[in-house]
Design a protein around this nucleic acid. Structure first.
Lengths: 166, 166
DNA sequence: TATTGTTATACTCTATAACTATA
DNA sequence: TATAGTTATAGAGTATAACAATA
């Protein structure tokens, strides 16, 4: 309060209503709790993120996957090595451009992802305990839609693409 | 599809509707983009998370802050060193228990946080471009409420508190 | 003796640079 | 020459362990 009291609630409120830090905070809590639940399934939180993205995107090149996940291409290699070793994804040389590896989820991968998500119900219940079932559903839908939007040029540039055409 | 076609949409849908990975994914995209915007203000995304939590919690011990942020106490030290050097927070010895440092936001800190959040409007617009203003407002409120909930015993235990009484 | 905060250190994660193969 | 992927390596981030002050 104090010196800020000359501002209307609206002025302050608009600036304060930013989701970034909250998103970071909640994601961290969820991720930490998830680790122990996912360990028995041989998965780490990052694997789940990759599988979740792959389920939505379908077959995709490693570079495109790096772009969507916003992680460096070199890290995609290790990530896919893990998933492929478990038989959850497949890498196949593209017929059109033999430099490319087309990444696709296997049936085992789809099944494992589903198992993992099932096991994570408890974690989500704890971390989102303040929300009602309907609100959790709303949250899921909003996150899902936001996450499905393509990565913008500005984001790609921030990742280190100076030749970006925008 | 294929072998899964014997399952009802509901069965699959329930398991698949987990927010954890989406939260992780979106938080990452937001965080990466935020860095360049926050840099001119001398802040990093993690500083913003800490300030956001401090604004809600009010005066708090370093240990309690570590618990809420779910980061190690040793890392709180460095985090607060940064923020204190910029004059955004203060550490004061507690009168009741002189082992404790009571952390509080300064007026400068409150102001800087507001500036940062204001500057982050563009980032949020980009990352949440798929959502309408009303939906973004809904998302903010849900995140805010979920984040305000106290850290559960299970979460505290996962952080390494074997003597937790639950 | 137990707890709060700090420092020193080791580990994990992520990014940068050099290499192979395809185009 | 440029691009997709891989490997090796260095830098940033995070946690574990030992220490000082206070309870």
């Amino acid at each position: 309060m104090g010196k800020l009291s000359h501002m209307s609630a609206g002025e302050v409120g608009q600036a304060e209503r930013r989701s970034g830090a909250l998103l970071d905070h909640l994601a961290r809590r969820m991720r930490l709790r998830s680790e122990s639940v996912l360990a028995p399934l041989g998965l780490r939180p990052r694997h789940l993120v990759a599988l979740t993205v792959l389920r939505t995107s379908g077959d995709i090149s490693q570079q495109a996957l790096a772009g969507t996940l916003q992680i460096d291409g070199t890290n995609v290699v290790g990530l896919l090595n893990d998933l492929e070793a478990e038989g959850l994804v497949e890498r196949k040389r593209s017929a059109e451009d033999r430099r490319r590896h087309v990444v696709s989820m296997t049936e085992t991968g789809t099944k494992r992802l589903r198992e993992a998500e099932c096991a994570l119900a408890t974690v989500e219940n704890d971390v989102l305990s303040a929300l009602s079932p309907v609100e959790r559903e709303t949250l899921y839908e909003l996150l899902c839609r936001a996450a499905s939007a393509p990565v913008t040029c500005a984001e790609a540039a921030a990742e280190g693409d100076p030749d970006s055409s925008c």
